[in-house]
Structure formats: C-alpha cells, structure tokens
C-alpha cells in the first residue's frame, strides 16, 4: 500500500470512528425522544392505548425475570434455522455454480420458492406438521434458504477469471478449486446475506410463533395482546429491537474477523 493510500485509509478509519460515536449519540437522543413522547401521550389517553414508559419498563422487568425461557426458545429457533439455511443454501448455490446440468433445475426451484409468500408457508406448515418446532423450522428454512443459495451462486459467478486460470494452472481437483478459491471467495457473500436476512428472520420467527407455537416470544406477544396487556406488547417490542441490534453486532463482529484480509470492508 502506498503512503498516500495509507493516509487516506487512516483518515477514513478515524472518520468512521467519529461516525460510530455519533451513531450512539443519535441513538440515545432518538430513544429519549420516543420515551418522552410516550410519557406525554400516556398522560392523555387510557393505559390500554399507550402505557407510560414506567409501566413498559415494569412489564419489561417481568419479562426478563419470568419469560427468559420464551426468549431463549425464539433465539434458539432463529439461530438453528439460520445455520441450517446457511449450510443448505450455500451447498445448493455451490452446486448451481459448479454443475451446469443441475443449475437450471435448482434455479427454477429457488426462483419459485422466492415467489411464495411467507404467509403461505406459515399456513401450510400449520396444516402439514403437528410439532411446533418442526413448523417453525420449516417456515424459516424455506424463507431463508433461497437468499443463501442465490447469493452464493452470484458469488461464484463473480469469481475473477484471472484467479480461476491461476489455480487451474496448478491442475487442481474440483474439490481443491472449491476449497482454495470458491469457498474463501464466497465467505463475504454469506456474511452479507446473513447481515441482510437476520432482521427479516427475527420478524418471521415471531410471526411464525404467533400462528404456529405455544412457546416463544411471538406466542407471548399474542397472549399479551389478547389479554389487553399493551405494556407487555411494548416491552416485547423494545426487547426485539435490542435483540436485532445485538444480532447485527454479532454478524458485524464475524465479518471483522473473517474479512480481516480486506480492511476496507470494515471501514465502509
């Protein structure tokens, strides 16, 4: 790297740090404004429309002390389905990228799947499976898998021909091409996919739980709603926002570790 590029890099890095501090500050301000608005509004309307922040905090405390099992069930389902979709989706994407005979069939399948609304899968799962765990796993996997498959396939198509020729010049086996070239090349695609689906997946698991399970955050929220505990609904909502932020942080952390060879990525 040239000195000039280094300087530019350092400047951008420190700029990024300033921006990060600014982000936290902005977040704090926005949260305070939301809480203040809730506080003011709750003084004018009945509790079942808008509870006070204190009531929500109390409900939140109740959740944290009594309902952690449900939180863990939800997070567990989410992670399991993410992991499975990732592995299966990447494998399907790999086959799509490597085998020209199977590719059109798999692609047709994936394209059809992406066109099926999440709601259809949720309703079908309720008809087809008794076990709530199977239902939720089924729903999440079918929703998430095509993202991994298609992005992996895109990653393989974006392989620089230069590098393919280079590795071919050593006359490798097909497996070695996957191991030394394709696999490391698609890691950023997998991470990016995870980053962009994790929020969606969180929403979907809640939704699926509302319809298809008796344990988990989604079913607890349904219960709270049907018993007019809007403070609990709000508390769950705040918790889910926090959960989503935590998951994003985890994925970004993975990205930093896995892509340390590409420092520009963590700056941008």
């Amino acid at each position: 790297m040239t000195d000039r590029a280094m300087e530019g890099f350092a400047a951008r890095a420190s700029h990024g740090r300033v921006a990060a501090v600014g982000d936290v500050g902005a977040m704090t301000i926005v949260v305070i404004i939301i809480l203040a608005t809730m506080h003011v509004v709750s003084g004018f309307v009945p509790d079942y429309i808008m509870p006070s922040p204190v009531a929500v905090a109390k409900a939140g405390w109740k959740i944290l002390t009594n309902d952690m099992l449900h939180v863990m069930a939800t997070v567990g389902r989410l992670l399991l389905a993410l992991l499975f979709s990732m592995i299966a989706g990447v494998l399907i994407g790999l086959v799509m990228g490597v085998s020209t005979t199977v590719r059109p069939f798999l692609r047709a399948l994936v394209v059809i799947d992406t066109g099926i609304p999440a709601l259809s899968w949720i309703l079908l799962a309720v008809f087809w499976f008794k076990d709530p765990e199977v239902r939720i796993f089924f729903i999440l996997t079918l929703i998430l898998l095509p993202f991994y498959a298609l992005n992996t396939y895109d990653g393989i198509r974006a392989l620089p021909k230069d590098l393919v020729d280079m590795i071919e010049s050593f006359r490798p086996s097909r497996w070695q091409v996957v191991r030394y070239l394709i696999a490391p090349h698609i890691v950023p695609y997998i991470l990016l996919t995870t980053k962009s689906v994790v929020g969606y997946a969180t929403r979907m698991v809640i939704f699926a739980e509302l319809v298809a399970a008796a344990v988990g955050v989604g079913s607890r929220m349904g219960l709270a709603q049907s018993s007019f505990h809007i403070d609990e609904v709000m508390a769950w909502t705040f918790l889910l926002v926090l959960l989503n932020m935590a998951l994003q942080l985890v994925v970004s952390g993975c990205e930093k570790v896995a892509l340390k060879w590409r420092p520009e990525a963590s700056v941008r």
């Binding site: 230069d162 590098l163 020729d165 280079m166 030394y180 070239l181 890691v187 590409r262």
Partner: peptide
C-alpha cells in the same frame, strides 16, 4: 502471469 493473481484472503 502478467498480473500477480494472488488470493487476497491469503
């Protein structure tokens, strides 16, 4: 080759 063609992650 004309360009180095190194694998950036290695």
């Amino acid at each position: 080759f004309q360009t180095d063609r190194l694998l950036p992650w290695r």
